[in-house]
Design a protein around this nucleic acid. Structure first.
Length: 222
DNA sequence: AACTCGGGGCA
DNA sequence: TGCCCAGAGTT
């Protein structure tokens, strides 16, 4: 896909989701980091239900260390992978207090040293809390990029990120990340993507083949 | 590269 | 019921 086509595709997606943004509830970098860590493999909606009360009880890194692990587990029990996440949160808080003076670090390398914080989480934190341009590649961004042909099907997550960064102006990385996520979550879904009403179908290799397959199936079953 | 963690959402 | 999901860590 050439540069002009990518520009057109991204502009169209931008028109489809003009309000795309981070949907996690948070008031500061620390709360955002906790929220993103909790969001692995579950929706932001679920995370927000939990953090709505969680962030009243736990306001500082020390607050998370002042309770037994079992209590923290119980407080986030409605979220998947809660045992891993609870343990990671306490280790993370210990590290933030001991090595970073109680503040979430701003540097990407320091963020990924925190337990439970990988490349994707770190990118979300630097872009949403510290205004540093980043494209966090989650399942939505990866799937959409590969379907559209911006990345290849067998590209690693890191390769997808590199290609997006190369093909999108730096000052649009963060907003593009959010737009691709909305596009993937509400339109170009993993199951039953809305190819039949997709405004960029003509630029989508997988979408066109999907439509062709659907058409063939309809004619044979008739 | 494959596996595990895991409750919630959705068909 | 069964399947997948705004991932990260380990093997």
């Amino acid at each position: 896909m050439n540069a002009v086509t990518i520009r057109h595709v991204l502009n169209t997606i931008a028109e489809m989701f003009p309000d795309a943004r981070c949907e996690l509830n948070h008031r500061n970098p620390f709360e955002l980091t906790i929220a993103v860590l909790l969001s692995a493999q579950c929706t932001d909606e679920t995370v927000n239900k939990v953090t709505a009360t969680l962030f009243d009880k736990y306001r500082t890194p020390q607050d998370y260390l002042n309770v037994p692990l079992e209590e923290l587990e119980n407080d986030i029990r409605r979220i998947g992978l809660f045992r891993n996440k609870a343990a990671n949160i306490q280790k993370l808080c210990r590290l933030v207090i001991d090595k970073h003076n109680g503040e979430i670090p701003r540097k990407h390398e320091e963020l990924t040293e925190l337990p439970g914080v990988g490349r994707k989480t770190a990118n979300v934190v630097v872009s949403n809390a510290f205004d540093e341009p980043a494209i966090a590649v989650d399942t939505h961004v990866e799937r959409v990029s590969k379907r559209l042909g911006i990345a290849k099907a067998d590209d690693s997550v890191l390769e997808v990120e590199k290609k997006l960064m190369r093909k999108v102006p730096r000052d649009e990385w963060t907003i593009t990340h959010h737009r691709l996520i909305f596009f993937g979550r509400y339109h170009c879904k993993a199951q039953n993507p809305k190819c039949d009403v997709c405004p960029i179908l003509e630029h989508c290799k997988e979408g066109k083949s999907r439509m062709k397959a659907a058409l063939k199936k309809r004619s044979t079953t008739k």
